[in-house]
């Protein structure tokens, strides 16, 4: 019964503490449904049984019953104490990472997630973790409050500027899970997504040892740029189909003349794109907010070349 309820309402349970959270969810849902049916049936029964029959209806004088009042206070009290202690026990587990947990640093900024690993490797939008090993995320924000949420793992915590917060989880199975930002953080809030990729220990170690990105051999420069467009978080703000999200669309922008916020005009060429990536506030396109973070230190020269190639290909 409890299983059926959690399968109907909740996403798949992919962390070690998810099943217990789900059972509590289903227990509360079940008790609530039973009580709601009780209340509704009593209401409908009274409406029919005691409906008005004439203007001279004599109604009962009974207006209180202490035994009844105590009963319907004590029973709910007992139920909610069960719920409280159950929730409390799991909450302590969820926010007490084991000391041997594998640590990954998380940096949130409008509107992307960046993950940095112990060996200095980093990734944007994709969190790679080893299977069946406790992982602790040490999180901070560069600008406003964000919140890190993985529904499949049943974990969520706010990410604060200039302060560390943490969550941990252990994923028994390999696979992919969705990351959401759940603290409203501005125009691109709903594009601040990511993916957790759970790999076997060997795969993970292998991934970790690969150089910090780099173009896979055989891939065209523009295709590599397209890959970076997704993985580096560009797509949260720049569309490739002409629609306006937060920043200017990339479609057809290369070679075009754009009006700047200071009244000047500029032709979008390689140097303008490079400057916009490394020093985004320098020349803002008219009508757009100055909100883009710098990618200095995050993208190397090859990667910038690839992104320029990709923008050129979007005609």
């Amino acid at each position: 019964m409890l299983d059926k309820i959690s399968r109907f309402f909740l996403p798949p349970a992919k962390s070690t503490f998810a099943p217990s959270v789900d059972n509590l969810f289903s227990f509360i849902t079940l008790v609530s449904i039973i009580m709601l049916i009780g209340i509704t049936v009593a209401m409908i029964y009274f409406i029919i049984k005691y409906r008005k029959r004439s203007d001279n209806d004599v109604t009962s004088l009974v207006d209180h019953n202490n035994a009844l009042e105590v009963t319907w206070s004590i029973i709910p009290l007992g139920l909610i104490l069960i719920v409280f202690s159950w929730g409390f026990r799991d909450y302590i587990r969820m926010f007490t990472p084991p000391p041997d947990a594998y640590e990954i640093n998380v940096t949130a900024q409008q509107w992307l997630w960046k993950f940095t690993y112990a060996n200095g490797k980093s990734s944007v939008g994709k969190l790679y973790v080893p299977q069946n090993r406790p992982v602790r995320l040490v999180m901070k924000s560069k600008d406003v409050i964000h919140s890190f949420f993985v529904p499949d793992f049943r974990i969520k915590h706010d990410v604060l500027p200039d302060r560390y917060t943490d969550v941990w989880f252990q994923a028994p199975d390999t696979g992919r899970s969705q990351i959401f930002c759940t603290q409203y953080c501005g125009t691109g809030h709903s594009n601040m997504l990511g993916t957790v990729i759970v790999q076997t220990n060997n795969q993970f170690e292998k991934w970790l040892k690969q150089g910090a990105g780099g173009k896979p051999s055989g891939m065209s420069l523009a295709d590599y740029g397209k890959q970076l467009y997704g993985s580096q978080g560009c797509k949260a703000c720049h569309s490739t189909d002409g629609s306006k999200i937060v920043g200017p669309t990339w479609k057809g922008i290369y070679g075009s003349k754009v009006a700047l916020s200071d009244g000047k005009t500029v032709t979008v060429n390689e140097n303008y794109i490079r400057e916009s990536i490394l020093n985004p506030g320098a020349q803002i396109v008219k009508g757009f907010p100055n909100v883009m973070p710098t990618f200095q230190g995050q993208l190397n020269n090859d990667q910038i070349d690839a992104i320029i190639a990709y923008i050129k290909s979007l005609k």
Binding site: V21, F25, I28
Partner: peptide, 14 residues
């Protein structure tokens, strides 16, 4: 009541 339960609220909050 569901949202008041600590562990479940972690999932449902926001």
């Amino acid at each position: 009541v569901m949202l008041g339960a600590l562990s479940v609220d972690v999932q449902l909050h926001a």
